[in-house]
Simulated scan of single mutants.
Amino acid sequence: MQLPVMPPVSPMLAKAVTTIPPGASYEPKWDGFRSLVFRDGDEVELGSRNEKPMTRYFPELVDAIVAELPERCVIDGEIVIATDDGLDFDALQQRIHPAASRVTMLSEKTPASFIAFDLLALGDDDYTGRPFAERREALTTALSAAGSSVHLTPTTADVDTAQRWFTEFEGAGLDGVIAKPLDGIYQPDKRTMFKIKHTRTADCVVAGFRWHKTSTEETPLIGSLLLGLYNETGRLQHVGVVGAFTAKRRAELVGELEPLLMREGDNHPWQEWANTDAHAGQRLPGAVSRWNATKNLSFVALRPEQVMEVKYEHMEGDRFRHLAHFIRWRDDRTPESCTYEQLERPLTYRLDDIVPGLVS
Rank of each mutant, 00 (worst) to 15 (best):
R164M: 10
A172R: 06
R235K: 13
D160N: 14
A91L: 13
I65S: 05
S48T: 11
G234C: 08
S148R: 15
L297S: 13
E316W: 00
F194E: 12
S35Y: 01
G223H: 07
L143Q: 07
S298L: 07
L87D: 07
L323I: 05
W270E: 00
Q342N: 06
K180W: 04
T156M: 08
G317V: 06
T276V: 14
A82E: 02
D40G: 10
A287T: 11
M54Y: 15
K311H: 09
K195Y: 06
P21H: 09
L257K: 08
E108T: 12
L257V: 01
N275K: 15
R321Q: 01
L323Q: 13
R200V: 03
L343N: 09
R135G: 05
E134A: 12
P7A: 13
R345Q: 15
T19D: 09
L143C: 07
E27F: 05
V241Q: 11
P131R: 11
M1T: 11
F326T: 05
T348E: 12
P220G: 00
E78T: 00
T216M: 12
V205C: 02
L323A: 06
G123I: 10
G228D: 09
F117M: 00
P59A: 07
M308R: 01
T339V: 10
S25V: 07
T55F: 09
V310W: 01
C73W: 08
G208Y: 03
F320Q: 00
A138Q: 11
A162R: 07
P285S: 08
Y57T: 00
A157M: 08
A247Y: 12
E108I: 01
H314V: 01
A247P: 03
D90R: 10
S101D: 14
E68N: 10
L152Y: 11
E108R: 15
P131G: 06
D160Q: 15
T276G: 04
G77H: 04
E170A: 13
V103R: 15
V307G: 06
F299T: 01
R95N: 11
F166W: 12
D352Q: 08
R191H: 13
G208T: 00
D90Y: 07
D124I: 00
H325Y: 13
P154I: 08
R263E: 14
T128Y: 10
P4R: 09
D40K: 11
R191C: 05
A116T: 00
T19P: 02
L253D: 04
D85S: 15
E258S: 12
T128S: 05
A172Y: 03
L343A: 09
I65T: 08
G184F: 02
A179Y: 01
L92Y: 06
F33L: 07
L36F: 03
P4A: 02
A244H: 14
V205L: 02
L351V: 08
A287I: 10
A146D: 07
E218D: 15
T192R: 12
S289T: 07
P269H: 04
T153L: 10
I115L: 12
V177D: 04
R164C: 02
L297F: 12
D125Y: 05
D124A: 15
P220I: 00
S224P: 07
S10G: 09
V103Q: 13
M262Y: 03
L120H: 03
V74R: 01
E256T: 13
L221V: 02
T153K: 05
S35M: 10
V359G: 02
R328V: 04
G86T: 08
Q163T: 14
A274T: 13
R164N: 09
G47I: 02
T104Q: 14
T348C: 03
H238S: 01
T199Q: 14
M193L: 15
Y26S: 01
L139R: 10
